[in-house]
Design a protein around this nucleic acid. Structure first.
Lengths: 347, 347
DNA sequence: CGCGCTCATGTAATCGAAATCATCGATAAC
DNA sequence: GTTATCGATGATTTCGATTACATGAGCGCG
């Protein structure tokens, strides 16, 4: 009743005091009913719960958070929420977080450093207990934090792995996966292979490129590689694959570092009146939900996206619960999925 | 220094007290430097800001939130984060929210009522200032809240429009758009048209269906309609379009209520050795990023997804700022995008 | 019978910032 | 010269929960 007019003629949310008064107990008891029910007598507990339902009480979150210094929130920053790969990782994160009683604060950084820093500040303001970042950069303020606080800093990296960052992470063996792709293409008889990478600043690209080079060198085909640098987007796949195809002796197979770029590549191939895989074989990366519904169905590397999400939350919760004193860099299994976009070269 | 050992040998975040002490002013002044800088003398402000940077101070969020009763967060629940349509709406929401100083709490409900209720409770706990829901259901506790508090309840609906819910919303004219699609197909000469709807409980499906029926009746073709109920997923598109195609006299055109279902339909057509649009024309809905890269490129209805996101945030901010006293149901423009998946019937 | 122990509960300090009210010096008005 | 006014800042209460500590009833045991 007291604060009624503050909220414009609307029943204000009852506070713990109201409940205590209504139930005829102290606020401490009400609090205990929620956080340590075993300490309070069955009969009192019932009395309190009745008051709670009668008043429609929900503990005020800010107050609780101020006192306990915990927010039960995880901040997740992602370079591009519209990328189906990331959205599936996020689904995994969200699921695991919810199961552990945490909720997810979403930060779509759009690959922009400025936004990353905005979210870093948010984290420093303690708006979240932990940070999961799915990109490859860690803003300076947070790097400092990691440097002083060490492996117990509640910051975890997903999808990428950059040892210098000194944070725990979950990801696949990008180098190995890329090498497998190359092996697959070499085994089919391809020799001139084009590669559309992502931005080379990201370890994800660097690692895959290393795998590509290792496999090529082992076959003595390194000099027959053709490289183009994309940015993981459909459009860049269209453009870069196009440039590879327009070269004097074009590759007979193209390996794109993302399924989206492969979609662009399919279009580039089509526009040139070529057929896939007859004229050009094509491999993607990620195995997003749509890969198997493209025409041709896309050969690609399947990443366990939801599992990455789960794992990354597990790592974070370990840190928050003070288990896990050392860094953990978890490598999850990937799988080369051979579909109809790859075949032997025609010539 | 006092709380140093609480946080395991790590410099604890400085508080407003520390800053006040360091700058030789009161906490009130420090607070004012942030929330009402014009009230404090230039020189003092500088002194304070120096202390702030020296100590790396960031105002504690929970404390601020407790005092002001504002969280500067928006809870966004979405039926399926992995759906590219929704992820683009979310991008719009996130962008508009960030620009207004709000951040986004993400709730992936997976179409499950139980999860919707979990997030409803979170909202009642005041973990967010406002709620944007992109599904079609509103949990009972929130419906009650709307009933008692009226149009100033900070709850807004995106994408769907169900008048009974009595909340503001932003969406397209689904009925009109669906009618346009039918007109397009009739104009091409199709008479037997199949429709793959979404779940009929969602207004989005109901409205589109109404548009379909209206257009069909106007042409006197209602009896030639064939209906199948999907759930917006690729798999259901594959299945339901398949069933339509397997009927005795199959439709010459299929209209799917989502691009994802259309992707499934493309596959269903392909599996039956038919060609699109030669044997069957196909129309989707949403114009997700991938629609134009499918084979054939998909004719579809383009929704302004990011704009829906922006608009829905604007509506919410209006409510939060106590502008806007009455409900607003905003209809945003859609556009029929004719691509190569539709053409005249062959026979 | 009284000491100590346990269990249930109450009392009150506390978290960190915001906001109201008080204060104080300086200026302006009369 | 006295007083009302104003501008800048300080002192203090407040937000709503958690939690360490205090209390007191009930009980067992010597």
């Amino acid at each position: 009743m007291p604060r009624a007019w503050l909220v414009a003629s609307v029943a204000p949310m009852a506070t713990i005091q109201d409940v205590a008064l209504d139930a005829g107990v102290s606020t401490a008891t009400v609090s205990r009913v929620f956080s340590a029910p075993e300490l309070v007598l069955e009969t009192t507990r019932k009395k309190v719960m009745e008051a709670v339902t009668r008043l429609g009480y929900e503990p005020n979150f800010a107050a609780k958070s101020l006192r306990t210094l915990r927010t039960e929130k995880i901040l997740v920053t992602v370079p591009d929420i519209c990328n189906p790969f990331f959205s599936q990782v996020i689904r995994g994160v969200e699921e695991a977080a919810l199961a552990a009683g945490y909720s997810v604060l979403l930060g779509d950084t759009r690959h922009e450093e400025a936004r990353e820093e905005q979210y870093a500040a948010m984290f420093r303001r303690k708006e979240a207990d932990g940070l999961i970042f799915l990109g490859h950069r860690l803003p300076d303020v947070l790097a400092e934090m990691v440097a002083t606080k060490g492996p117990r800093t509640p910051i975890v990296n997903g999808c990428e792995f950059r040892p210098g960052l000194a944070v725990s992470s979950a990801h696949i063996d990008n180098e190995g996966a890329a090498a497998e792709v190359m092996e697959h293409l070499y085994a089919l008889g391809h020799t001139r292979i084009g590669v559309v990478t992502g931005p080379l600043v990201s370890p994800i690209s660097g690692d895959r490129l290393a795998g590509v080079l290792a496999a090529a060198q082992q076959r003595g085909r390194a000099s027959a590689l053709r490289m183009a640098i994309g940015d993981f987007s459909i459009e860049s796949g269209l453009r870069q694959a196009g440039e590879l195809l327009d070269q004097p002796s074009p590759p007979t197979a193209i390996f794109c570092f993302s399924d989206e770029m492969a979609m662009g590549a399919i279009e580039a191939i089509r526009r040139r009146g070529l057929a896939c895989p007859r004229d050009v074989s094509l491999v993607g990366f990620d195995d997003i939900r749509f890969a198997q519904y493209l025409d041709p169905q896309l050969t690609t590397v399947s990443q366990p996206m939801e599992q990455i999400g789960h794992e990354v939350v597990r790592l974070l919760l370990d840190i928050l619960a003070d288990r896990a004193s050392s860094l953990q860099n978890v490598t999850l299994p990937h799988r080369l999925i051979v579909r109809s976009s790859t075949g032997p070269p025609s010539s």
